[in-house]
Design a protein around this nucleic acid. Structure first.
Lengths: 237, 237
DNA sequence: CGTCGACTTGAGTTAACTCAAATCATGTGG
DNA sequence: CCACATGATTTGAGTTAACTCAAGTCGACG
């Protein structure tokens, strides 16, 4: 696939003319990472940012004891690592390829130069950063104000909406990774999954596929209206 | 104070020429809010954003049961509520004046027009949003990966750094508000304060003034290297 | 002097954690 | 095709940080 086609497919560059895109070509470079390979580490200087062309990338924090909190998962088309470019700081988190991934790298200076010339590009970037702030707001709300079952419920509903169905949904990631997204640990997540199944909220094949059986109750859980221990159809063994 | 002087004092507009500032005058308007008054609510349409001229503003989320998580506290010069302007969404949180506050309001359309004409303005805004993402990253890390004593330690160190001293530091806000910033409740915060005092980490007069006595240990707490129960000089009664 | 809000302290509960072990799925080498 | 190593997931048992609820105490203000 041609580099111009790649650029044209990136939402960040939507609305740019063919010439604008041509203008970007000389400043970008491809980089390939293997599954599990580190892309940047917390504290590294942010001299540029990346866009996912193929594969998948996670951005995450680690605690002193090694617990992981995933901040973002990025799929093709999504830029990441931009914030340090504009704030002039180091990367505040780590990034790692979850599978073999091809990325486009944009160096800071070249990109800022393009922004100076192209208001549409800066508005696109402003929209992306704003969207990301919104995502973070939700994550903070979840971590601070909801219990883990509520977070899982919200996540399952989000998947359901994104995949446009209630049946035959797929997690798309391992449960260990999901635990790290939700700010918990695999054991806790596993217990909640089985409890939700037992109470008839969902039906899971245990291999990343699931169905939503009681959407209303999931929504109530996600909203914090009900708690898990109280909720549900008293299917107690 | 003149409106131009106000505009010139706002970091968001640093680097703008006198003419650029003049150009902004007709599109802004002053708004005054009393202590405790709501500025916007979660879900309101984001038709513009605000800049604090005087006073103080908190942006926060509420749980279903009424627990509050403060996302930001804004002081004079800081813009807030910008994200929905660029993402075209509703406000994801609530904003309230903590004391009588004067704000400048910028309507969305007028501001976007100015951005189109002024790359320096958009770079300033990109820097501010990036900085805010960085703040959120830290908050998420704290909520997910640190215990409450670690968060308090980090906050006290942050205040110490900002005020450039170890002695005669001031909290600047009520402990109830601080609890809401740290993602906990006043009772828990109170217990941690007294434990830190008992262990000789800090010395607090209980009225918003404190001293840091053992900076190293606070730093270790903040980094998650040590836990509270283990740490400290076994001053057990 | 009494009221109100902010803060503290005590007692009990609980959601989520740690640690340990069993199970299962997958892939490798023989 | 089997035996085993590896990693993901589940389940059990026990611990704990932080919560809720309740009862003060304290200080500012009218």
């Amino acid at each position: 696939m041609d580099i111009i086609e790649h650029l044209a497919a990136i939402p960040l560059f939507s609305g740019l003319s063919r010439e604008d895109l041509d203008d970007l070509v000389p400043v970008v470079q491809y980089k390939t990472y293997q599954r599990g390979e580190r892309i940047f580490a917390e504290g590294d200087e942010g001299t540029g940012f990346y866009v996912v062309i193929s594969g998948r990338v996670k951005v995450y924090k680690l605690s002193f004891e090694g617990k992981e909190q995933i901040l973002h998962m990025f799929e093709p088309g999504a830029p990441f690592g931009e914030a340090p470019v504009f704030a002039g700081k180091a990367f505040p988190a780590n990034a790692e390829a979850l599978e073999e991934s091809v990325l486009l790298y944009f160096s800071r200076n070249a990109f800022i130069e393009r922004i100076n010339k192209n208001p549409s590009l800066s508005l696109n970037m402003l929209a992306i950063l704003s969207e990301r702030l919104h995502t973070f707001t939700r994550l903070i709300e979840d971590l601070s104000l909801k219990e883990t079952p509520g977070r899982l419920a919200a996540y399952l509903l989000y998947l359901s909406e994104r995949q446009g169905a209630l049946d035959n949904l797929e997690l798309g990631i391992s449960k260990t990774q999901l635990a790290s997204i939700l700010g918990t640990i695999p054991e806790t997540l596993s217990r909640i999954f089985s409890k939700m199944t037992k109470q008839g909220l969902i039906d899971s094949d245990g291999h990343g596929r699931f169905r939503i059986l009681n959407r209303l109750m999931l929504e109530r859980l996600a909203a914090g209206e009900v708690r898990f221990s109280q909720s549900g159809s008293h299917t107690e063994e």
